[in-house]
Design a protein around this nucleic acid. Structure first.
Lengths: 173, 173
DNA sequence: CCTCTCGGCTAACGGTGTTAGCTCAAGGTT
DNA sequence: AACCTTGAGCTAACACCGTTAGCCGAGAGG
């Protein structure tokens, strides 16, 4: 494992363990038994570290989405579950500016593919689904919903927008 | 106008004009012909400034939503339009931690009310609508969609999830 | 044996939010 | 009129932040 990878691992640990504010070059160096400026022998700067972490997280999320049941409900659940289980990573992926030049090609598309497939290839609907899932997750992680809100019910209502569930009463006789 | 309000106005200007990074206590003081520490005679700290700007923006957005046509389409359009016209404010409102103790009571509910009314009072659907609108706006502002993406079409598809438009072909003969 | 490169180091710069403590003018009180 | 209080500015400083410049020693290769 290269020193660079050690740095990225330590950075990832710091991020999930103590949050984004704790992820400073000095703290990171300290964690590795090194002074902050020495990090620059292996990494161009903090931006590169964050970009690498972003890519890692995006890949991990894509793996999870590919493993999910390939319909809207399965994907929605997987999307939400991953975000809630990895809030720091999700926030980094979606709130930090995405430098596509640094990102390996295909990574973004790989994460989006399952969503696109689940809505039958309709780009507009796929983006709506993405927006819906991201919006709900982002608001939930940001604590924007009142603590009394039933978010499971919210997600059920959201998924039903895409896959209407015939109610028992009104189903065809 | 109190000195505090002058400070908040200057802060708002700095935010929309030069972005969140430019909104530092020293820059803000400079803009007012004052040294940064003097700001603390009128304001408890940067957090209070941001909270006040957040509340202002939330109120402005609520006004816009109340003025919109009170259906899903009208609200969706108004939501998106306001966010795109005031990206810095929208980002501040949604990405900065919301301190409800500092927020005047009712402000949050006032912004949410039109959405709730548009879906007939169904809380779960209202939150889904909010999530959808916020998600699409957040992703658009963050530049997450490819530049080739037709976001108008995406919004049309999104709104249609709530208000299905009978197509010409399949409409009742 | 010499040299060169790698990976550490210290010192420093300019930036951030914030605190402590001083000063001075304005206004109200006695 | 003299005094006192308060408000609103100031400087100096602290502890952080990301980053750069330049030095140094160990180890590898010729």
């Amino acid at each position: 494992m290269s020193r660079r990878d050690e740095i990225l691992d330590a950075a990832a640990g710091l991020l999930v363990e103590e949050g984004p504010d704790a992820l400073s070059m000095r703290r990171l160096g300290e964690l590795l038994g090194i002074r902050a400026p020495s990090l620059y022998k292996h990494v161009s700067g903090k931006e590169e570290i964050l970009a690498a972490l972003q890519e890692r997280a995006l890949r991990a999320m894509a793996v999870e989405l590919e493993a999910a049941r390939p319909d809207v409900r399965g994907l929605g659940d997987a999307y939400r579950a991953w975000a809630l289980a990895n809030p720091q990573q999700y926030t980094l992926v979606t709130r930090h500016p995405l430098d596509r030049d640094r990102l390996a090609p295909g990574v973004e598309a790989a994460a989006a593919a399952p969503l696109l497939a689940a809505v039958g290839g309709d780009q507009a609907r796929a983006r709506a689904l993405w927006g819906l899932a991201h919006g709900l997750v982002d608001l939930e992680l940001a604590g924007r919903f009142p603590s009394t809100a039933d978010l499971d019910a919210t997600w059920r209502a959201a998924i039903e927008l895409f896959e209407p569930e015939p109610t028992q009463k009104e189903s065809q006789p």
